[in-house]
Structure formats: structure tokens, C-alpha cells
Design a protein around this nucleic acid. Sequence first.
DNA 1: CATCCGTGTGAATCTCTAT
DNA 2: TATAGAGATTCACACGGAT
Lengths: 361, 361
Amino acid sequence: MTAEMPINRILRGECVEVMKDLPDGSVDCVFADPPYNLQLRGELRRPDETVVDGVNDAWDKFADYKTYDDFTRQWLSEARRVLHKDGTLWVIGSYHNIFRIGAILQDLGYWILNDIVWRKSNPMPNFRGRRFTNAHETLIWAARSPQSKYRFNYQVMKALNDDLQMRSDWYLPLCTGNERLRNDHGVKLHPTQKPESLLHRALLAATTVDDVVLDPFCGTGTTPAVAKRLGRRYLAIERHPDYVKAAEQRLEETQRLPADQLEVTPAKREMPRIPFGSFVESGTLPPGTVLHDRQRRLKATVAPDGTLVSGKHRGSIHKLGALLTQAASCNGWTFWYFERDQKWIPLDTLRQESYALRQTA
Amino acid sequence: MTAEMPINRILRGECVEVMKDLPDGSVDCVFADPPYNLQLRGELRRPDETVVDGVNDAWDKFADYKTYDDFTRQWLSEARRVLHKDGTLWVIGSYHNIFRIGAILQDLGYWILNDIVWRKSNPMPNFRGRRFTNAHETLIWAARSPQSKYRFNYQVMKALNDDLQMRSDWYLPLCTGNERLRNDHGVKLHPTQKPESLLHRALLAATTVDDVVLDPFCGTGTTPAVAKRLGRRYLAIERHPDYVKAAEQRLEETQRLPADQLEVTPAKREMPRIPFGSFVESGTLPPGTVLHDRQRRLKATVAPDGTLVSGKHRGSIHKLGALLTQAASCNGWTFWYFERDQKWIPLDTLRQESYALRQTA
DNA sequence: CATCCGTGTGAATCTCTAT
DNA sequence: TATAGAGATTCACACGGAT
């Protein structure tokens, strides 16, 4: 290593090698989006027969778990050396790689502060119906050591979340539309570009103005771009010259926010959808519960999966209501009634009560 | 190991030892809520709950991770031996232990299918304001091997979620109120009792009626209680006699749902196959019947052997559909339409009607 | 100008059975 | 064990052109 510390630059090269040239303790925060080692096998098609454009790049291929672990141990070790003693590290991954990364960083002496779940508002569905929709990715936020006096901007996060403590589950959309970098033919430049909103929240939580942020897997430069906009200094490492070029251009077009705007971010609150099945799971309406319509002419029974059964018909609260009344559609929430304290109450009451509970929780 | 297989019982003892007495491949699903190895500052605990001295010493920390890893490897290995080749395993944990568990189960040959995030509707706040509110726990769902033909009740999960694919993030409340087991003084019996709703969803997704569910860390019996209620068989292991007693009492008070209330949305894959030719044989679609696609751009004629003919092409309803649309594959049942009462109806309707007839027959 | 509709797409470990 | 054939399977958005 040398004592020379480059700053606000994108360095081209292998991150382990490049980091070796950086001084000890010179970085306040690391954000890393390493290869996931996805191990995709064949071609996957949507129900409409179009082919899914999966990650098929050479940089995501590793021979086996051991090769991936060795690689992980190397870059996490160098990142730790380069980190300031009170610095923190973010890593993002999926179930393919995140467990290995988490275990290795614990072995290396990092101290996990939180695991954060990025809940995707618009994930790709599971086209074959063989698993749960893979609707999230996991970030690990860790201090360099258990003794680190790390930075956490508690009030900033609370303000960002309508004056409620920021939770460990973040609901954010994918990087799509205009934000996604594309070439002249409209083809995405990078298969896994992260949304700026994700970086915005992570950097806003764990760094302050003029802190140095290092991204060892820079890609098309989301981390340095958000860092620059938020008035942080940055250093990014990227192997592929095309990505370096794209990131440099992006950074030219990115302006540091004026000082008075550095901490203003609107937060959208989601109104969560409540599936009828959740009341079955919770025991509020156990399987076997009898429901009626308002006039009590129709009758249906609740099944363990939240469907209703009436004679030989089965369907959701909406579908069965429509079927039995021969209507095109039906709002099952207001159509079906259940009995409580000898009164018949519309299902929708349950939903209203549930919303009220969530607000105060 | 012996060939003796106890069933619907809670076995008292260390789970690794007890599992050694169970036959190979005798269990369809494992649900495990292992000790968390919580590392509070100044107090580090081994899996057996004894306190480790000198937490701040790196060597001790390594020693403790190693102890936890060895323990994890042991119980995951025995669980894998006991699992049926097509069986699946659920493990729940937090950031303190889940990364080690995930890496070890991958090393042992398990194949991760999903990681699931249990988002708590009512988590404990972070009192010191030094981190994000720890508002979730992580479950790993894994098959015994990449070759396992595991069970996933896709349609059941979809029904439970208002006819949308169930995602990998589950929003469920903690176990509180009446559901929480307490002693005569109102003190909770177990520090980490899981909500029944969580088990309801996991078992409903990955098992069917009469499957055998094993819980190696039974605690106060949430897993066997939900398994019993849902008509699954169970086997549970618990070390502490007080918990065994509480779980046994709880199971006595838990009733299996009546058979007609256990029925859920059937999987299409598991419906009996009906050959298209049977409708030709029965005269429902006599040879010469004309079929169209939905847009009525394509036309085919039924042959006596149940193949379709279009120009010089001939093949099954699937093959011909794929051929004419130049698709890799095609579901002929939903692709082709026939005319009845001056309406064009998909072939699949015939199949549905045939199923309904069998029900009433 | 607002609305509707068709099209495209996103870190994906994505089938099962009979022969 | 390899191959062939049947047949099951999608959600949230963004964008652009048409209404």
C-alpha cells in the first residue's frame, strides 16, 4: 500500500488489487454490490413465450462455493483494512450469496449492526409457479469491529420515515425507466443497476457530508453518483472499461446538491393491501367459519388457504361472491358477513380494524 | 439409527441424539427454530446458554463462532439424513445466526429455494436509537438436494394472497395476547414463541395432509400444534422438561380440523390426466370438428385418433398449437376453442366439466 | 389534454412423467 | 439414464400510440 489517496475518482482494475494501493483506515464507508454467483441453468421463458434476459455475464460465474468464498474473503479483508476504525460496510446480495458473505464477514471481525431487506415493489414474478416470488434482496450493514463508534443518523432516518423509527425493511422500486442507463439502441448497459433511492437511504443513514465512500464493484456508478449528489466524497473501482466510461459520464452529469437541500427527501407511505387469507392464518376467521351475504340467503365456508367453499364451488371472496350472484364482479370485503358477538359484520370491518392497528403499532 | 419411527409425539432430549434414532428419509418436512447465539455486548452465549468470558477477545469470538458452527452442522446433518429425498427444511433466525446457518446448509448439500422475510407488524423499537428497528426475521426454505422434487402448493399460496403469487416477504404479527403461553403469574413461558400464523403459512405451502413434520427445537409446541390442526403428522424434540409439558398440554387442547375443512385449492399438476382423445371417443368432439385459436386466425380439424390436422400439419393439440405459432411449447387445452351453442369455448372447459362430474359421481 | 390499451421487462438458482 | 411429450405458468410499472 502507499500513502497516496486518490479521491472522487473511478479506478479501473480488480478491486482486491486496487484496494491494496489505498492507505489503512482511509475510508469512512464501503458500499459493495459483489457478484451474486447465481448459478442459472437453462433458458427461462415467460408464459407468453418470451425469453427472460437473465444475468449471464462471465463476472458472475464461479467454479464452486470455495472459489466464491475465497474471492469474498479477499475483498472483505482488504475493505476492512482500508476502512476507518469507526467505519461501516454495506453489502447487498440475494439468498445465493448473502449467507456466505455474512458468515465470512463475521469471521473477519466485522460486527453486524442490521440486516436490511430491500422489498421490491415490482419484482419479476415466478413464472413457473414453483417457488415464492423472489421479491427482496438483503443488505448487511456492519461496523469494522464491535468497538467501532459508528455513525448512524437516527434523526435523519426518522424524519425520512414520517417521524417513525426507520425499520429494517425498505420498500423501494427497481431501477427502471429513465433512471436505467441504456445504449443508443435502448439496451440496458448493466444487468443489475441498483436504484439510486437505495443508495440514498444507505448513505444518508451511515455517512455525513465530506465522508469518503468506497464502492469496490462500481458498475455504472450508482454509488459514486449518489455520494456526489449528497456531498460525500467517493472512490470507486470497476474492472470493465465500458462500465468505467458510463460511470464517468454519469458523474459529470451529476451535481452536488446545494447545502440547504442536502437532507430533504419526501417519503411515500404505502397503504398496505391486506389479503383475506391473513385473517385465516391469524385465527380471526379459522377454517370452517361460516359466512353469509347481507340478506343471509347465501352461505360459504372458509378454507385453510383463504378460499371460500359453497357447495361444489370454490374461490376467493370476490370470485365466489360474483359466481353465486352471477355478477361480473363482486367486492367480497363488503359482500360477505361473519358473526361476532351475535352480530353479523362485513369482512371489511376486519380490514378497517387492521389498518387502524398498523397505524398505531 | 433404528427402524422404529415414533409419530405424533414430543420426544424429550438433545435433538442431535434423538434424531440419530430416527430412520433415514422418514420425514417430509423439517421446521427448525434453533438457538440464536445472541451476542449482546459484554455477554456472549454458547448454544447451551452458558456465558463465554472475554467477549472482546478476537480468539474467544472465533472460538464461539466455531462452537456454534459445529453445533449447527451436527443438527443440520442429522436433519438431512432423516429427511425424505424430496423433503424440504425451514429454518428461522436473525442476523446473529442466519448467515452461518445458510452457509452451512449450502455446504451440506441442501438447495435453497427461497429466503423468506417475516416482517413483524409490531416489532420492538430500538430504544437507544443506534440502529434501524430490527423489524424482521429471516427464514430459509431449502430442499434436501438440487434434485429433490419438492412440494410447493402454488395455488394454495396464491389463494391465500388474494389470487396474487405469494411473495418472499410475509407481514405477520408477533405472538402476543391469548396465543402466548403464560404461567399462573402471567409470565410468558418461552422467550421466543413463534406465532401460529407463521407456521400455518409455511406448512400449508410445503406439506400436504398426513405428511410428517419434524421440529428439532420444539419449545412450547407451535409447530406440532399447527401441524396437528392442519391434519399433518408431527414429531417434535425438546430438551427442557417444562417446555415438553407445556407443549403436550397444548397439543391435547388442539384439534385436527374436520376433513372437509382441510381441503384447499387443488393443484392442476396433481389432477388426473384426461386425454384429449377421450372427448373424441365419447362423441363430444366427433372427428371433423373444427377448432380455432382465440383470435380465430388459425383453424384445425379433429381426427379420429385425437390428433389435429391443419393443412399438411398433424399433431397433438399441444404440438400443433406450438407448430402453428412457432412457439417452443403450447398448452393445447387453453389454446384451442370449439363451438357450442354459438359460443366459442376453450377445450379446457370440457376438462373442468369432466372433473366436476367425477366429484359428484 | 386526459385516458385507455398494447407492449416490454426486471439479479431467476423456475416441470414432470412415461418410456 | 437420456429423451420425448404433455402441459402449467406472470406482477408492477413505464412507455408510446391510439382514442
